[in-house]
């Protein structure tokens, strides 16, 4: 569980997050949603200690500031936004980077690390790609490979920044279903999402950010209300929590089905 209270982040004197408080519950899939520029990625990065922030962050009741970088890396894996890779590594070599927090300064990949790498490739269906060059993959393949890289850490928590961006609907479903099943197996996951339908159908817990503040926080019934969505996105939304459908401005979103 990650708790944050009165968390503020400023960038060149502009407040990006203004005293937000909330938590990412254990072994659940938490969606961080909100309009563009609401501070979603900033919240994700602040929780990982990648940004200077004020306020309190505690991971499993231990203050973030008391973690060393390697200890934090073993606790929370991070899947950054974007797909930029700087060297044309093989898929397997790229995924093995996820084991870095577990390696000593001089040690090499051990059999237990190899197990974790294979496991991550199996989970993401990237085993057949293992000897391909990671920079030559399609966007969907690369997104799954990068997710495998994050899973290979085998950390109890994962923060993913827009893992569904630039994926076609089939891959979006694959990736969110994978995150969901990881959370059901005990992983604490927070992911920044744009797709409200995905948030409605897959997330156990939601944080709705607007203008650097939390507008609503809790289960999807509590957060995805017509009033909240009107205030956050300026849309007229109708949500059926039972059927898990969402209609916006009178049009029902056609949910991709498996």
């Amino acid at each position: 569980m990650i708790r944050f209270s009165n968390l503020s982040v400023q960038q060149s004197r502009t407040p990006i997050l203004a005293g937000v408080s909330g938590h990412i519950p254990r072994a659940q899939l938490t969606g961080i949603i909100g309009p563009n520029g609401a501070g979603k990625s900033t919240l994700a990065r602040a929780l990982l200690g990648l940004l200077p922030s004020s306020g309190d962050i505690a991971i499993n009741n231990q203050p973030l500031g008391t973690f060393t970088r390697p200890a934090l890396a073993k606790t929370i894996a991070y899947l950054p936004q974007g797909q930029m890779l700087h060297w044309p590594l093989s898929v397997e070599r790229l995924i093995s980077l996820g084991r870095l927090p577990h390696l000593g300064p001089l040690s090499r990949i051990q059999p237990s690390d190899q197990q974790a790498i294979i496991w991550a490739m199996e989970q993401t269906g990237t085993l057949p790609l293992r000897s391909r060059c990671a920079t030559a993959l399609s966007g969907g393949e690369r997104a799954r490979v990068l997710l495998a890289r994050a899973l290979a850490c085998q950390s109890p928590m994962l923060i993913a920044d827009e893992p569904l961006a630039s994926l076609d609907p089939g891959y979006q479903l694959d990736v969110i279903a994978l995150l969901k099943s990881q959370s059901e197996q005990g992983m604490t996951i927070a992911c920044v999402l744009h797709d409200l339908g995905m948030a409605l159908r897959y997330c156990d817990h939601l944080i709705l950010l607007v203008d650097g503040k939390i507008l609503s926080h809790g289960s999807s019934e509590q957060v995805l209300t017509s009033a909240n969505l009107a205030a956050a996105f300026g849309i007229d939304a109708d949500i059926d929590h039972h059927a898990k459908t969402l209609s916006i401005n009178g049009r029902t979103l056609s949910e991709p089905t498996q």
């Binding site: 890396a73 991070y78 930029m84 700087h86 850490c153």
Partner: peptide
């Protein structure tokens, strides 16, 4: 990338 490396410890 830099964030990716920092998150790896």
């Amino acid at each position: 990338g830099e964030d990716g490396a920092a998150s790896l410890g």
